[in-house]
Simulated assay, not measured.
Amino acid sequence: MSLTSLQLFKNLSDETRLGIVLILRTMGELCVCDLCTALDQSQPKISRHLAMLRESGILLDSKHGKWVHYRLSPHIPSWAAQIIEQAWLSQQDDLQAIARKLASVNCTNSSKAICI
């Protein structure tokens, strides 16, 4: 399935999905619980948005032990990557603060049971 501009903009028009994409652009790869912490949202809400992003081809997932990690797909079209990059640049300071917060509470390095 090829990502269309309409699909990209529909996905990025939601604040939670945009936040997920920009945080993953900053951090590279994260599990659900890290995204819940970063966005201060519940696990079911984050998981629902992750599924939408994964179905559209924007994200990829991989299983690491008991955790599922998400990252931006390297297969998205270059025009879509440029749009994400520009959005990231516009919020870079806020995203770096989130990255510092996550570095101190990263759940995949702890024994938290909420990562599934």
Rank of each mutant, 00 (worst) to 15 (best):
P44F: 01
V68C: 03
K112C: 15
D14P: 05
W67F: 07
L89S: 07
M27W: 10
R100V: 08
K10H: 12
W79P: 04
C107L: 11
T16N: 00
R71M: 05
M27V: 10
N106W: 12
R48N: 04
E85D: 15
V32Q: 14
L89N: 11
Q43H: 13
R48A: 00
L6T: 13
I20Q: 04
S47A: 03
L35F: 03
S111H: 14
L39R: 01
L50N: 02
L22G: 03
D94V: 08
W67I: 03
L95G: 08
S90H: 11
G28C: 06
C107D: 10
A113R: 15
D34M: 00
E29F: 06
I46C: 01
L59H: 02
A113K: 15
C33K: 13
C107A: 06
L53T: 01
L12C: 03
W88Y: 12
S78R: 13
Q86G: 03
S62T: 07
L59C: 03
Q82K: 09
K10E: 08
I23Q: 02
S42N: 07
I98L: 05
S13A: 07
I84R: 03
H64V: 06
G19A: 04
P74H: 09
S2A: 14
I23V: 09
N106S: 09
P74V: 09
C33Q: 15
P77H: 11
A113L: 15
R71S: 07
H75D: 15
W79Y: 02
P74Y: 09
Q7R: 13
I76W: 05
P44S: 05
R48Y: 03
L3M: 10
L95A: 03
S73F: 05
T26N: 15
A99G: 10
E29Y: 08
V68W: 05
P74K: 10
N11W: 04
E15P: 15
K45A: 00
R25M: 07
H69R: 08
E85Q: 13
K63D: 05
R100A: 08
R54D: 08
P44A: 01
L24P: 08
S47K: 04
R71Y: 05
C33V: 12
K63V: 05
I76V: 10
T108P: 11
C107Y: 11
C36R: 09
N11M: 08
S78D: 13
A97P: 11
C107T: 14
M52H: 06
D14E: 13
S90A: 07
E15Q: 12
W67L: 09
H49F: 00
C107E: 14
I20L: 04
K66W: 07
I98H: 08
A51T: 05
L35D: 07
I58C: 01
S104Y: 11
L6N: 14
V68F: 05
A51Q: 08
W88E: 05
D93P: 15
G57P: 09
A87I: 03
D34I: 00
L35G: 02
S2Y: 11
G57V: 04
Q92I: 12
R48E: 01
I116G: 15
L39S: 00
K45F: 00
H75C: 10
K112R: 14
H64N: 11
S73W: 06
T108I: 06
L3Y: 10
L22S: 02
